[in-house]
Structure formats: structure tokens, C-alpha cells
């Protein structure tokens, strides 16, 4: 089990690094575009790079973001009940989370296969949509694994403060 949790963490971190690299490429591209445009030579379609670069940045930072605690929780009540009940509620909500993202990952897979067939692609550079759909599917699959790791921790009672 430990090696499973470890592997998830490594993959999530790798996705997060990719998303950071894409973000820095977006910074550079925009900077160069602004300079060139003011000399009369804009990079045509730079918006599309930023737009779909953003898609990679956002989707690849989902699972590691969750590990870093990027999901907003209303803890008004949950922090005030007794640890035993809190643990049970936590286990239930983790299971719900896993189901949600497995379901989303599956539907993105279907969507990816579908847009591959319909041939939808970006307007400027004609990049097909389907790799983005598959990337999203993979990220959300990792997201559900990440929540699963959290569940294991909760079941073991690691955070029984």
C-alpha cells in the first residue's frame, strides 16, 4: 500500500512540474508577443496557445493541488464534533469524492473518443481537442487515486487528533 501511495505522489508531482513548465512558457510567449506586437508583428493565434496551455496548467495541477490542500472546505461544523464521528463522516465524504472523479475521468475518456471522431480542433492551429480530453481524463483519474490515498490515511486513523 505504501508503494501505491508513493507512486501516486510521484506521478502527481510530475504532472505539477509539467504544469509549472507550461505556465512559464505561457509567460514567455505572452512577453514576446507583447514586444513583437508593438513592433507590428504580433504572433497570430498566441491567444490559442495561452488558452490551451491554460487547459494543461489547470488540469495537471488538480491532483497535486489536492495533496497540497487546494480544495476549499467549510469546516464550521466538522471541526467541532467528536473525533470518532468526524472520522466516519470523513470516510464517507472521501468515498463520495473518489466516485465523483472516477465518474468524471470515465466521461472525459468517452468525450475524448467522441471528439476524435467528430474532428473538433482549435480554430487557429487546428490542434485536435482529443489530447486535451485525454489529459483531463488522466488528471481526474489521478485525482480520485489521490483522494483514495487520503481515505486510507483516514481509515488507519492517522489524523486522529
Amino acid at each position: 500500500m505504501k508503494s501505491f501511495t508513493g507512486a501516486i505522489a510521484v506521478i502527481n508531482k510530475a504532472l505539477y512540474v509539467i504544469s509549472g513548465i507550461v505556465l512559464s512558457c505561457m509567460v514567455m510567449l505572452t512577453f514576446i508577443d507583447v514586444i513583437l506586437r508593438n513592433f507590428g508583428h504580433p504572433i497570430t493565434g498566441s491567444m490559442e496557445f495561452i488558452q490551451y496551455g491554460g487547459c494543461i496548467v489547470f488540469s495537471f495541477s488538480v491532483p497535486f493541488g489536492t495533496m497540497l490542500g487546494a480544495q476549499v472546505i467549510v469546516d464550521l461544523i466538522i471541526e467541532r464534533i467528536n473525533p470518532r464521528k468526524k472520522r466516519i463522516i470523513n470516510i464517507i465524504t472521501r468515498c463520495v469524492g473518489i466516485m465523483i472523479f472516477l465518474f468524471i475521468a470515465y466521461n472525459f475518456l468517452i468525450y475524448g473518443i467522441d471528439v476524435r471522431k467528430t474532428g473538433e480542433r482549435t480554430a487557429s492551429f487546428k490542434i485536435p481537442y482529443y489530447p486535451f480530453a485525454f489529459a483531463l481524463s488522466f488528471s481526474f483519474l489521478m485525482q480520485s487515486f489521490t483522494i483514495f490515498c487520503d481515505l486510507i490515511k483516514k481509515v488507519k486513523g492517522a489524523d486522529n487528533e
Binding site: I50, G53, G54, C55, V57, F58, I104, N107, F108, L136
Partner: peptide
């Protein structure tokens, strides 16, 4: 669900 994720994640102004 997935269309809304896709649309929001590919919205230029959110970058």
C-alpha cells in the same frame, strides 16, 4: 459535468 470543466479550463480570460 465534463463540458463545463472543459469549457472553464479552456477559457482564455481565466489564464
Amino acid at each position: 459535468v465534463i463540458k463545463d470543466f472543459f469549457d472553464n479550463f479552456t477559457t482564455y480570460s481565466y489564464t
